[in-house]
Simulated scan of single mutants.
Amino acid sequence: MIHRKRIISLVLTAVMCLGLGLQVNASEISETKEKAAQLENQKKAAENEKNSLAAQLEKIAGEMEDLQGQIEEKEMELFAKEEELSQAKVEENEQYQDMKKRIKYMYENGNAQFIEILLESKTIGDFLNKAEYISTISEYDRDMLEQFQEIVKAVEKQEAEIRDEYEEMGDMQDELIAKQDQVSKLVTQKEAEISSLGSQLDDTNKKLAQLEEAAAEAQRKQAEAAASQQAQSSAGSGYKPGGAGAAVVSGNGTFTHPCPGYTYISSYFGYREQPLAGASTNHKGMDFAAPQGTPIYAAASGTVVSAAYSGNAGNMITISHGNGLSTIYMHCYQMYVSAGQTVSKGQNIASVGTTGNSTGPHLHFQVNLNGVPTNPMNYL
């Protein structure tokens, strides 16, 4: 009795320690999840900023393309105006040279020739016409020179205005190039930030997966310790390690609980993220954690279809209950029935073990309807 109490005390201590470990692990998991969420938000914000910068770059590229087209047009205008100015200066110079020749001629010959021309006039009308002609030539030279000079000034002014616009566009182009370089650097920095956040997020998610796996393992061990404590407490209640015990029927469902008193489910029916190596992620039954040797009871009356060792399932019993229903009991330690045997509801058919592909003592309880696995909770 003293020895049994000591064992129970040790088991209780282990359960308490495991419980404290689970609390610490849960706190770390919560903190890691929060950190992962923060990193995810930071990464999304950085990606949004990068997309915004990329849009700015695209806009700048469009503005530069438009400005380049305007610069090319202005270059053509400037080239045409330079040609026009050059021609105006040529015409101005030609007029100036012609006028200089006439002035030189008059200076070198004096006024005698003009007087002779006038004296040769036969009539007063002819005289007046010749005098007016000489005056007209002088006025024409002067007027034409002034006209050409005005044209040159006008073209020079237009050329200066075009050149100012051209230089202004060049400054605008330089500003756009500088802005483009600045935004490109920001994009590069943002890409580096996103890469860093992505690496941190990957590391955090890996840590979270490890923590959750450790928590699941600790929870399983806690359940096994609790089950062991319960088994020690209920020792002498009729269970005999060497053979089958009395029948037990519990619950109000179609099936009695196959392992009454051990309701902790270490693995539920359906999808599971981290199965054992070689096991399917689609769990076809429910795992009840219980210490080795705990009685297993037939969920309902029926006929034992098979009771033998079966690879990953270990010692396995299959019972047919009619109407397409059958139940399966895996990883048994001892089996108390054989194929072809008729069993009653609640009959002790085996004991909990860890045979086959198993991490610890538990009962894999599976319900098939017309050969298809279905959730056992629908029948318990």
Rank of each mutant, 00 (worst) to 15 (best):
T13S: 13
S250M: 04
G324L: 05
A61D: 15
H3G: 08
M64L: 13
Y96S: 15
Y309V: 07
S30R: 10
Q68Y: 06
H321K: 02
P295D: 01
A154H: 08
D143N: 12
E63T: 04
E34N: 09
A244G: 09
N48W: 07
T136M: 11
E94K: 14
P376D: 05
Q189C: 07
G270K: 02
I29R: 00
D287S: 08
E191C: 00
I194E: 08
N370Q: 08
N25V: 03
V152Q: 09
A307V: 06
T355C: 02
S27A: 15
R220G: 12
A218V: 00
Q68L: 10
V187P: 03
K59V: 07
E34K: 14
E191I: 11
P376G: 04
G125I: 10
A46C: 02
I194V: 15
I8M: 15
K104F: 10
L201I: 01
A45F: 04
S27E: 12
E120T: 10
G270V: 00
A192M: 03
E91L: 15
E108I: 11
E161S: 10
L369P: 00
G245P: 02
D202R: 05
G270E: 06
S267C: 06
E212D: 04
K101S: 04
K240S: 15
G245L: 01
T188D: 14
D141S: 05
M106S: 13
K43V: 04
S86N: 14
E77D: 15
G125P: 04
V152F: 03
C17W: 13
K284R: 15
H283G: 04
F148R: 14
V343R: 00
M1N: 07
P376A: 09
I151G: 03
A246T: 09
S121G: 15
S184L: 04
D174Q: 12
T374V: 15
K206D: 10
A231H: 07
M64S: 11
N315T: 06
V90C: 01
A225E: 11
Q149S: 13
M64P: 04
L145I: 12
V304G: 05
Y329R: 03
N378M: 11
M1D: 13
Q97L: 15
M16D: 15
N25G: 12
K207F: 00
G311A: 13
V343G: 01
G253W: 04
E161Y: 09
A339Y: 05
K74M: 08
Q70L: 09
Q232S: 12
K100C: 07
G360D: 07
G314M: 03
S280R: 03
G371H: 05
L78A: 11
P295V: 00
N25R: 06
Q97D: 13
N323Y: 13
I124Y: 14
D164C: 07
N41Y: 13
L380K: 01
G356F: 09
A154R: 12
A299Y: 00
S234R: 13
K221A: 14
L57R: 09
V248G: 02
F127W: 09
E139K: 08
Q95M: 11
M335G: 01
